[in-house]
């Protein structure tokens, strides 16, 4: 019952927000396409990655929607075949960074009582994070890739290694903001154990900014990977597994951009659309995940009578609706 009603809310908020609804549809569509390409590529992709079509450097046509290149490879097919890899890279790197950095950030933010093991761990985590953050991440990733050798896996590993510190910072900051809120103190006064407070009150209230950041971050990872691919250390193109960054690099450097502009169009457009879709979805999620904004969207569509006490909750607050007024006395705690 609860699940169905929250799904219903999800839909209502999405519908109320046309742009994020569009983003949601786009992400769903992209994921679906990626799955189809992995499972049954022939449905969507007419040619193989290095299959010669016999048509050299043709401009877009019905047969070749994004044209062909000097090797007579179909650009549309290559772009589509790159989708699962690029999408997977985005999700895997951002996800791994989220899990690793998030866990470290939780520890670093929550345990800070001086003289405890937790505090010592927090300090070490933060200093190591600072060291990683003080390098330009792209250059660091490039250096690591160079050291490990060219290829998809080394690049993924290199980006992942430079990516987690951002999540440590983000999560720690959010934990610090949440953990001194009155309801955390209230839970402690009620006798709730620290571990449970961390999960139930702190993590739950972090989820919204973290998920939003994660969604937006998938796009950023994609762009970074493409950049490294563009420099030419990640994947080889043309090759058995195409990748957008490498495609861009290859067509751009083949010096024919003026004669055959459509060659760079397809991979460029693919990166653009994917990143945009995740950005729009991220913005929409921000509204969906917060019960306070959720209510603003569904008010008027929910049709059960409010109990008398909640009268004036939203309309009652005076100057600015939907923000609650604070307590009058600031109290004595410094």
């Amino acid at each position: 019952m609860a699940i169905r009603s929250s799904l219903g809310t999800f839909w209502r908020v999405l519908r109320a927000n046309p742009l994020s609804f569009f983003g949601f549809l786009l992400v769903a569509f992209i994921c679906l396409v990626a799955v189809v390409i992995v499972v049954a590529p022939h449905l969507l992709v007419p040619y193989g990655p290095q299959q010669e079509t016999g048509a050299f450097s043709q401009s877009p046509s019905w047969k070749h929607p994004f044209g062909t290149d000097a090797n007579s490879f179909d650009i549309y097919s290559n772009t589509m075949l790159a989708l699962p890899l690029d999408l997977g890279i985005g999700v895997v790197i951002a996800g791994a960074a989220l899990l690793a950095g998030g866990a470290l950030g939780l520890i670093a933010g929550f345990y800070d009582r001086p003289g405890t093991v937790g505090a010592a761990a927090s300090v070490s985590i933060m200093r190591i994070t600072d060291i990683f953050l003080s390098f330009p991440s792209l250059i660091l990733a490039l250096a690591i890739t160079r050291a490990l050798g060219v290829g998809v896996l080394p690049t993924v590993f290199a980006i992942g290694l430079t990516w987690w510190p951002f999540y440590v910072r983000l999560v720690r900051g959010e934990v610090l903001a949440v953990k001194h809120l009155p309801y955390v103190t209230a839970a402690r006064a009620a006798g709730v154990r620290e571990g449970r407070i961390l999960l139930r009150h702190v993590v739950r209230n972090l989820l919204e900014p973290i998920i939003v950041y994660f969604t937006l971050d998938i796009g950023t990872v994609l762009v970074t990977y493409s950049t490294i691919g563009f420099i030419g250390v990640a994947s080889k193109y043309p090759g058995p597994q195409p990748e957008w960054g490498a495609m861009l690099a290859f067509y751009q450097s083949s010096g024919s951009i003026n004669a055959y502009p459509w060659e760079v169009l397809a991979p460029g457009l693919a990166i653009f659309v994917t990143v945009l879709a995740f950005s729009l979805l991220g913005d929409g999620l921000r509204d969906i995940l917060d019960p306070r904004t959720r209510r603003a969207f569904v008010r008027g569509t929910v049709s059960h009578d409010p109990p008398p006490e909640r009268a004036g909750a939203a309309p009652g607050s005076e100057s600015v609706p939907l923000t609650a007024s604070g307590a009058v006395d600031a109290g004595a705690v410094p």
């Binding site: 009155p182 309801y183 209230a186 009620a190 009150h201 739950r204 209230n205 019960p291 604070g326 307590a327």
Partner: peptide, 16 residues
Amino acid sequence: VQVVFQDPVGSLDPRL
């Protein structure tokens, strides 16, 4: 011993 806090907005977890 239980406590009722001064801030009726902040002392209730908004997500629960």
